[in-house]
Every structure is written in C-alpha cells, then in structure tokens.
Amino acid sequence: MPDDLTDEFGEYAHEDMLQALVLSLLTSADLDELCDDADLPQLTHDDGLPVTITSARTYRDAGVLTLDRGVWLELSDGSVFGLTVQISRRPRGEVTLRRR
C-alpha cells in the first residue's frame, strides 16, 4: 500500500473510503438533483422550494462522540441525520489502495 494512501486512510480503509465517498456524493450536487438521478421524489418545503443539504461533515468534523465512521447531515428543513458506516465483516484477503 503506498504510504500517502496509508496515511490518508489508515487501518480502517474500507470505512474511511465509504465515508469519503458518501460525503463527496452528498456535497457534489443538490439534494433534489440526487433524488432525480436516483428516480426518487424530491423533498420540498411548504413554499415548494426544494429541501437542501445545508451541512455535510464527517462525524469527527461534526464533533459526534463515536468511534464509528459516518457523515452528519443537516438539512434546510431543520432535520439532522447521521449516516453511519459500520463494518460487519472484514475482507477475507488483503486489500490494497491505488490511485486511478
């Protein structure tokens, strides 16, 4: 495993990679666009405007007191969600990281 990737993702590569992927996905487009892409209905406010993601941070950056990896989401309607990445089984063999 290259040193820079080991430093970046460490011992918990699977959890860290999935956490980074979810964070990237949820901050790369508006929630209504993500719903359209997934063929899901859009969340809207009473005035018809789409609900938006106002903040998406890792649990660590959001100050969530847990050892789990995850993404803390705050939406414009005032709701708050924690999306936890929790491993249920470790890989059977060695897995390496590589840049594309």
Rank of each mutant, 00 (worst) to 15 (best):
T54E: 08
S24E: 15
S28D: 15
D30L: 08
A38I: 06
V51F: 04
H45P: 00
T54R: 15
C35E: 02
L34I: 06
D32K: 06
S55R: 11
T44Q: 11
Y59M: 03
A29V: 03
T54H: 10
A29F: 04
S24R: 07
Y59T: 02
E33A: 10
L25W: 01
V22M: 07
D32E: 12
R57V: 05
A56K: 00
D47W: 11
L26K: 14
Q42F: 11
E33R: 05
I53M: 01
T54F: 09
L43F: 06
I53W: 00
D46I: 15
L21F: 08
T54N: 12
R60N: 07
D47G: 12
D47K: 15
S28Q: 06
P50N: 10
L25P: 02
S24L: 11
A56N: 02
T58D: 05
T44S: 14
S24N: 15
T27M: 04
A20I: 04
P50T: 13
D39Q: 14
L43S: 03
A20L: 09
L23S: 03
L26C: 06
T54A: 11
A29D: 14
C35F: 05
E33H: 08
D32Y: 07
L25T: 04
L26W: 01
D30W: 02
L43Y: 05
L49N: 15
V22T: 09
T58L: 04
E33G: 07
D47Y: 14
Q42E: 14
A20V: 07
L21K: 12
